[in-house]
Structure formats: structure tokens, C-alpha cells
Design a protein around this nucleic acid. Sequence first.
DNA 1: CCCAATTAATTTACATGTCACCTATCGACA
DNA 2: TGTCGATAGGTGACATGTAAATTAATTGGG
Lengths: 154, 154
Amino acid sequence: MALRDELKKRDPFDLIEQEAALSIMRTSDLLENRFARLLREYDLTRSQYNVLRILRGEGRPMPCLEVAQRMIQVAPAITRVVDQLVNAELIVKTQSDSDRRVFLIDLTSRAKRVLKAVDVPLLELHRSLLSGVPKKDLKQVIAILQQIREGVSE
Amino acid sequence: MALRDELKKRDPFDLIEQEAALSIMRTSDLLENRFARLLREYDLTRSQYNVLRILRGEGRPMPCLEVAQRMIQVAPAITRVVDQLVNAELIVKTQSDSDRRVFLIDLTSRAKRVLKAVDVPLLELHRSLLSGVPKKDLKQVIAILQQIREGVSE
DNA sequence: CCCAATTAATTTACATGTCACCTATCGACA
DNA sequence: TGTCGATAGGTGACATGTAAATTAATTGGG
């Protein structure tokens, strides 16, 4: 179904740019929803999972703000997520010796187990959500969206 | 390649499907941010604006839930946004005569003025955000994202 | 005609994101 | 050395989104 039908908009889009933007946001909502639903089964929110995933990818303790930057998030949001994760014993937070402003966070073994349990189902979800789309098209979307992001950041 | 081998490949992305999904969500975040910033100048949030836009598009009083469905939102969220808009005197809410469970909302003349004021800047923002991207590419993105949404909805 | 299922809307609880502002620490430079 | 700007991080207020439970009204089957 075309986006303009989904939204039951009577007039055609004024601009193709507008249709593209709405299309991106609408699709993002759908995807986020699916991922959130899967992660909830593991008692994780998307933010929490992202923090864990970044830490694992980096393989070393990281400052909170460095994690935040990779998540395109503002510092205050990270603070709370970190608190939750510490509370859930999924990360540990220690003050850096070299710079006492910095707090380093690192995965616990429990977190590593959880991540491992989530890996396959999540990968399968990614695969199944986009399975109907040829890889060639996915590559193209990735390239064009990158172009959009570069334009927006300016 | 075996699934477990793919899982070890963390750089840059495990799967093109994953890269595509992350790309869509990141781009959406960026765009939403820009739109939110513009609307804030008119003391509107994105949700509030969407309710007004839908009402204008329909051109008649609508039940709250009908508006919610078009916004892909859950009912409780709408309830609050409606309250805010009533408070700001941008919509009026009246109980339906034919079905007293239903509350109809409709634009005030003030809201129509605000919408009119927002129209051009918003359209310009849409245009400028995606101006760097050829229309051909935008059409392609729209088509592929539509395909993705169809797969996800199943 | 009545009861059960359904539907519109709301309330509550919780997670998240943003902004504005605050604290502590660092580091450079006068 | 002392001050000042920059940086890491945290707090509080507010808006939004979701889920789950609740209320009120409607509707359809027995």
C-alpha cells in the first residue's frame, strides 16, 4: 500500500521530498516497534540493548559519553540507562583513575550471556523483517539514506 | 556462511539487513529532530501538529481514535495530546450525539491560522533537507521502503 | 429483554527523549 | 598559582510512547 493511502491523505503529496521523509519516519517506527518487542522478552529496552551492544563491539570499558555519542543520544538519557543497567547487574561503572571526571562502564559476565542469548533471535528478526527485499535494493537504500544524512547534518 | 561465523563479524555490520534497518532508524531520528525543532518555534510538538494536520486534511470533526489510528499511535497517547490541544484552544472536543462513547475533535479558527503559518516553512524544510538527493533516488527510496513496510506488516 | 463481548476513551505506571541548568574536574595560560 | 574555559557527567521538568487495566456505552445473540 502506498504511503499516501496508508495515511488516507486526500491530496497527493506536495513534494516528493515530503513523501520520502514521511516514508522514512513511518518505516523507522515500524522497525523500532518490532525490535522493541523482541528485546522486551529479554527484559531489555532498545536503549539498554544498544549500550550493551556498543560495549561488546568495543571490547573495552568505555566512558559514558563515548557510548552516548555512538547512540546519537544526549547525555542525560545515557545517565539513566546506565543507572538501570548497573542496577540490573549488566554493567559495572568505575571512576577512571587518570581523569576523575570520567566514569567507565563495562559489561558483566551476566550481560555477555544475555547478549549471546539475544544474538540469534535478533539477527533472525533483522533478516526476516527485510527478507522480502533484494539485497541490491537494500544497498541502494543504505547509500541514499547516507546521502540524506550527510545533507541534513550540514 | 554459518550463522555463528556471521555473528563474529561485527565490523561494520553483521548483515546488510541490519545495516539497512539501522540506517533507516538513524535517518528517521535526524529528520524527526529537524521537524521538531521547526515546530517548536510555533509552540507545537510533532504529535500535536500531526493531529491538526490530519483534522485539516479530513475537513470534518473526527473521533479521537480515528485520528490516533492514522498517526500509528496508541490511544492513551492521543488522549493527552488532545487535552493539550484543547487547552491551547487549538481544537474543541464534543461528545457525539449518536454514540456517547465517542468524542469528536475539530479545529478552531486559531488552529487554522497556525497551520497556515506553518505550511510554507515546513514545506521549505522538507525541500531543503532532501534537496541534495536526486528525485530519482527519492522515488527509489520511497518504493523500497514501501516494500519493507509491506513485509513487516505481515 | 438481558447478558456478554466489543468498542471509545481514559488512567496509571514506566521508559525515553529533550532542554536547561548544575557540579566536579581538568588543563592551559597569565 | 590561581583563574577561567572546556569537558564528563548528573538533575529536574516536561513531552511522548507503550502496556495493562478500567470505565462507560453500544451491540448482538440467546
